[in-house]
């Protein structure tokens, strides 16, 4: 990808962010309204913390590889992950 264009890591950040929010939200809902048919280890509330981890990772990626930040050259110079044109 050429300088100034979106990095693949930004797309990945968006994906993790939205998926994380959806999973965490579904986990919180299940915590408040527990279903009758529960998965094994339901008491650990995995969707809440796993969704939270994905959300935070997505947030970091979206921020670090955001188009405005890249255009400003802040991340671009250090961007080992992104292909150069």
């Amino acid at each position: 990808m050429r300088s100034g264009s979106l990095s693949i890591w930004f797309f990945i950040g968006v994906s993790l962010l939205v998926n994380g929010a959806l999973i965490c939200g579904a986990g919180v809902y299940e915590w408040i309204y527990p279903p009758l048919d529960r998965v094994v280890l339901f008491n650990l509330h995995a969707p809440v913390w796993w969704g939270g981890v994905l959300f935070i990772l997505g947030l970091i990626y979206c921020f670090y590889f955001s188009p405005t930040r890249e255009r400003g050259g802040v991340a671009g110079a250090k961007n080992e992950w992104k292909s150069e044109g």
């Binding site: 959806l22 999973i23 965490c24 529960r38 998965v39 969707p47 796993w50």
Partner: peptide
């Protein structure tokens, strides 16, 4: 997957 994952995690 079905053993441990409820709504959301199952979709992922």
């Amino acid at each position: 997957l079905a053993r441990y994952c409820g709504p959301g995690l199952l979709g992922l």
